[in-house]
């Protein structure tokens, strides 16, 4: 495991890691929303840099991507967005590989990582970059002291899991179910199974954050009780942004709703740690 310290520190207690698309629906409101999440108890925040072909996203985040791009979001404006944020939790850039690859001049990937380090980002999640193709980005992250988070799917086993554990730093993003992002009301039965598998496979000392479909404090509690070190919540928060935008609500009101939702999710994660461990075989 690479030891680019940073992000793992956010998981000292059960962590709440929200996701929002930067610039959704516009830069000014979006800054306010991210700061509201930090006030509500976020331990780290994933900021989406929108890509035109988000193949891992469901409809909720696809529409956030459209709103942000229509508002003029670009990689450079994304970096300025990060610089303008007034929060003191670690920030992770979630984006697709082509944007990282095309940025700047010279050797591909390096300029993007260098600029990310400069504005204070602490790591990346790149949903279309499996371990096989990640050596270039991993090397650049090592050079600039950033973390590279990998997603582990319910279908990931054996050698593949080992290859990911070898390259990951920060945290493992445990995908709770097959499919794309989107809020759900239940906790996938595969979450516990995945966490058990990870616990067995030498992945003990890297934090495991579960995402894909978590939308309530109760779900967050269940996931943490099942052994997760944190929860990642995206679509449920993006839904709040989308609804506020559709209803023309003032950004301050939407920010308050986000902060309240963040509290619920963070409290849920903390409460999950107090629950008795699952009995064998459930």
């Amino acid at each position: 495991m690479s030891d680019a310290a940073g992000l793992a520190a956010a998981f000292e207690e059960p962590a709440f890691v929200p996701y929002l698309a930067a610039g959704d629906p516009d830069v000014e409101a979006s800054l306010e929303y991210v700061e509201a999440l930090a006030r509500g108890g976020a331990d780290a925040i994933e900021l989406g840099l929108p890509f035109s072909e988000p193949i891992a996203e469901g409809p909720t985040i696809q529409q956030a991507v459209v709103r942000s791009l229509e508002g003029g979001m670009t990689p450079e404006r994304f970096f300025e967005f990060v610089e303008a944020l007034d929060v003191d939790v670690p920030l992770v850039c979630m984006t697709y590989y082509n944007l990282i690859y095309q940025y700047g001049d010279g050797e591909p990937v390096v300029p993007f990582v260098e600029r990310a380090a400069e504005v204070g980002l602490e790591g990346f999640v790149v949903p279309d970059l499996p371990a096989e193709e990640a050596d270039r980005l991993r090397a650049a992250c090592d050079e600039f002291g950033l973390d590279l988070v990998f997603i582990v799917a319910p279908t990931t086993r054996g050698d593949r899991l080992a290859a990911i554990v070898e390259r990951v730093s920060g945290y493992l993003y445990v995908q709770a179910r097959l499919g794309v992002t989107g809020a759900r009301s239940d906790v996938s039965g595969r979450t516990a199974e995945s966490l058990d598998r990870l616990a067995e496979q030498a992945a003990a000392d890297i934090p495991k954050a579960v995402g894909f479909g978590i939308s309530s404090g109760e779900q967050a509690a269940e996931v943490v009780a099942a052994g997760a070190d944190g929860v990642i919540v995206g679509s449920a928060l993006v839904d709040i942004v989308a609804q506020g935008h559709a209803d023309d609500d003032p950004p301050g009101v939407v920010a308050d709703r986000l902060e309240a939702k963040a509290r619920e999710l963070k409290q849920g994660a903390l409460a999950g740690a107090q629950r008795p461990p699952r009995p064998e075989g459930t």
């Binding site: 193949i55 096989e132 593949r160």
Partner: peptide
Amino acid sequence: GGQYVPEALMPAIE
């Protein structure tokens, strides 16, 4: 070429 796809698809691609 290569294989730039979400991890969930990688086992199927293998």
